[in-house]
C-alpha cells in the first residue's frame, strides 16, 4: 500500500480551479518530485495534502487513513511535515528555539539525538545556535527550515521549492542532503521544484504538473531525458 495516495483531487480558490483532478502516489521510502511552471498548482497540491485549502473533490489517503477532513495541525500529528515555500522560519527566535518548536510533536526523549543529527547534517546551524534566525543567510535559513521539519521525525517530508532564491552551490548542498536523508534514513520525500534538473536527477519518480493536471509521469531519469520536459523545463541545458 502506498504511503500517500491522492485520487482525483480538485482544489478551487473561489471560481479558480487550481487542481483539476490530480492523481499522485508516494510509496514508502521514495523521493517523488513534482515539477511544473508557475501557477501549475504544485504548491496548492502540497497545501491541500496538509489540509488547507480543503479539496472540493477527491480523496487523500495517508497510510490507510483519509486525511481530507483534517486541519493542518492534525495532519502534522500523523507525521506529515512540510517545509513551506519561502522557508518561513521564526525570525525573532534563535536557531535553537526554532528547532525546539519543530519538535513540538516529537518525543522529548529523542530531542537531543535529533538536534545532534540536524547539527551533523548542517554544521553551520550549530555555530549559529543562539543567533536570531532572521539574521541567517538565505541558505542557512533553508537549512534551518529543513532541520526544523525533521525534528518531529516525520514519516513524510514535503519540501516546497527548497532551492528558491539560493546560490547554485547551496542548492547542490541542499539536494545532497535530501538524497542523503532518503538513503540513510529511508525518509519518504515529496519534493516540489522549479529547478527541474536537480530535482529530477535525484527523484525515483516524478510528475509534471500543468494547469492543475498531471501531464506526464515516470521515473526521474526517464523524465530528465524526455524531449518535451527538456524543452519546457530545462531550456539551456543542465545548470
Amino acid at each position: 500500500m502506498s504511503l500517500l495516495q491522492l485520487t482525483g483531487v480538485r482544489t478551487n480558490y473561489g471560481p479558480i480551479e487550481a487542481l483539476r483532478g490530480v492523481d499522485v502516489t508516494v510509496e514508502q521510502g521514495e523521493i517523488v518530485t513534482l515539477i511544473g511552471a508557475n501557477g501549475a498548482g504544485k504548491s496548492t497540491l502540497l497545501m491541500t495534502i496538509c489540509g488547507q485549502p480543503k479539496p472540493a473533490a477527491g480523496s487523500i489517503i495517508f497510510d490507510g487513513q483519509s486525511i481530507v477532513d483534517l486541519p493542518p495541525h492534525e495532519t502534522a500529528k500523523l507525521g506529515i511535515a512540510q517545509v513551506p515555500e519561502g522557508r518561513r522560519i521564526f525570525p525573532r527566535m534563535t536557531v535553537f528555539e526554532n528547532l525546539q518548536l519543530g519538535a513540538t510533536l516529537g518525543d522529548p526523549a529523542n530531542f537531543d539525538a535529533d538536534i545532534a543529527y540536524c547539527f551533523d547534517l548542517f554544521p553551520i546551524l550549530q555555530k549559529r545556535r543562539d543567533q536570531r534566525a532572521g539574521t541567517l543567510s538565505g541558505g542557512e535559513q533553508q537549512m534551518l527550515a529543513i532541520s526544523r521539519a525533521l525534528m518531529s521525525r516525520p514519516r513524510l517530508l514535503l519540501l516546497d521549492e527548497p532551492s528558491l532564491g539560493l546560490a547554485p552551490l547551496i542548492i547542490r548542498r541542499i539536494f545532497d542532503v535530501i538524497a542523503d536523508l532518503n538513503k540513510t534514513r529511508g525518509m519518504t520525500i515529496l519534493l516540489v521544484e522549479q529547478n527541474a534538473y536537480h530535482a529530477l536527477k535525484l527523484a525515483h519518480r516524478a510528475y509534471v504538473l500543468a494547469q492543475g493536471q498531471v501531464v506526464l509521469q515516470g521515473a526521474g531519469p526517464e523524465l530528465l531525458a524526455n524531449p518535451e520536459v527538456r524543452a519546457a523545463y530545462l531550456e539551456g541545458g543542465a545548470h
Binding site: 496538509c50 486541519p71 521564526f90 513540538t104 518531529s152
Partner: peptide
C-alpha cells in the same frame, strides 16, 4: 512552556506554526 512558545511562534509565522502541528 510549549503554550508560551506557541504564542511567540504564532506571532512570528502562523503558517509555519500550523505545519509544525501547533493548533493556532
Amino acid at each position: 512552556l510549549p503554550v508560551g512558545r506557541a504564542w511567540e511562534a504564532l506571532r512570528e509565522d502562523e503558517i509555519a506554526c500550523r505545519s509544525l502541528g501547533i493548533n493556532p
